[in-house]
Computed example of a mutant assay.
Amino acid sequence: MNLSELKKGEKARIIKIGKIGELKKRLVEMGITAGEVIVFDRNAPLGDPQEFLVKENGISIRKEDSKNIEIELIK
């Protein structure tokens, strides 16, 4: 499953961040790494980007980029 498939309020654990160039480096610097818990908060008014919560911090990621982040749902 990838990050773009999460629904509002769902929690997931990041398994792997795929090849998304310089964005991967920035995400890691912000604490988005394998093993971290991420929660889908909301979509922007036009549906892109999506906002997520990681370590109680909001971060916006474009849908195209979030498709490259592999996750597993947390019940």
Score class of each variant (00 low, 15 high):
residue 1 M to N: 11
residue 1 M to S: 13
residue 1 M to E: 13
residue 2 N to W: 05
residue 3 L to T: 01
residue 3 L to Q: 01
residue 4 S to F: 07
residue 4 S to Q: 13
residue 5 E to D: 15
residue 5 E to F: 05
residue 5 E to P: 04
residue 5 E to I: 04
residue 6 L to T: 00
residue 7 K to M: 08
residue 7 K to Q: 14
residue 7 K to N: 13
residue 8 K to G: 05
residue 8 K to M: 07
residue 9 G to E: 08
residue 9 G to T: 05
residue 9 G to Y: 09
residue 9 G to Q: 07
residue 11 K to R: 14
residue 11 K to W: 04
residue 12 A to Q: 01
residue 12 A to Y: 01
residue 12 A to M: 02
residue 13 R to H: 05
residue 14 I to E: 07
residue 14 I to R: 06
residue 14 I to G: 08
residue 15 I to F: 15
residue 15 I to E: 14
residue 16 K to C: 06
residue 16 K to V: 04
residue 17 I to A: 02
residue 17 I to T: 05
residue 17 I to Y: 03
residue 17 I to V: 11
residue 17 I to M: 03
residue 18 G to F: 11
residue 18 G to E: 12
residue 18 G to P: 03
residue 20 I to L: 13
residue 22 E to L: 07
residue 23 L to K: 12
residue 23 L to V: 07
residue 23 L to R: 12
residue 23 L to D: 10
residue 24 K to Y: 10
residue 24 K to P: 05
residue 24 K to W: 11
residue 26 R to E: 13
residue 27 L to G: 02
residue 27 L to P: 02
residue 28 V to L: 15
residue 28 V to D: 12
residue 29 E to Q: 09
residue 30 M to Y: 15
residue 30 M to L: 13
residue 31 G to V: 01
residue 32 I to L: 08
residue 33 T to S: 06
residue 33 T to P: 03
residue 33 T to H: 07
residue 33 T to E: 11
residue 36 E to G: 05
residue 37 V to N: 11
residue 38 I to V: 07
residue 39 V to F: 04
residue 40 F to R: 14
residue 40 F to I: 08
residue 41 D to V: 13
residue 42 R to M: 06
residue 42 R to E: 09
residue 43 N to E: 14
residue 44 A to L: 07
residue 44 A to H: 11
residue 45 P to K: 02
residue 45 P to V: 01
residue 45 P to Y: 02
residue 46 L to A: 10
residue 46 L to Q: 14
residue 48 D to A: 05
residue 48 D to F: 03
residue 49 P to Y: 05
residue 49 P to N: 08
residue 50 Q to P: 04
residue 50 Q to G: 06
residue 50 Q to E: 08
residue 50 Q to H: 12
residue 51 E to H: 09
residue 51 E to T: 15
residue 52 F to Y: 15
residue 52 F to M: 02
residue 52 F to K: 01
residue 53 L to H: 03
residue 54 V to A: 04
residue 54 V to S: 03
residue 54 V to D: 03
residue 54 V to L: 04
residue 55 K to A: 06
residue 56 E to D: 15
residue 56 E to S: 13
residue 56 E to N: 15
residue 56 E to I: 01
residue 56 E to Q: 13
residue 57 N to C: 04
residue 57 N to D: 08
residue 57 N to V: 03
residue 58 G to E: 10
residue 58 G to W: 08
residue 59 I to N: 00
residue 59 I to A: 00
residue 60 S to N: 10
residue 60 S to M: 12
residue 61 I to H: 01
residue 61 I to S: 02
residue 61 I to F: 03
residue 61 I to T: 02
residue 62 R to V: 06
residue 63 K to L: 09
residue 63 K to A: 09
residue 64 E to H: 10
residue 64 E to K: 12
residue 64 E to W: 09
residue 64 E to Y: 11
residue 64 E to F: 09
residue 65 D to W: 07
residue 66 S to K: 00
residue 66 S to A: 06
residue 66 S to D: 01
residue 66 S to T: 00
residue 66 S to R: 00
residue 66 S to E: 01
residue 66 S to V: 00
residue 68 N to P: 04
residue 70 E to R: 12
residue 70 E to S: 14
residue 70 E to D: 12
residue 70 E to C: 07
residue 70 E to V: 06
residue 73 L to H: 09
residue 73 L to G: 04
residue 75 K to N: 11
residue 75 K to Q: 12
residue 75 K to D: 11
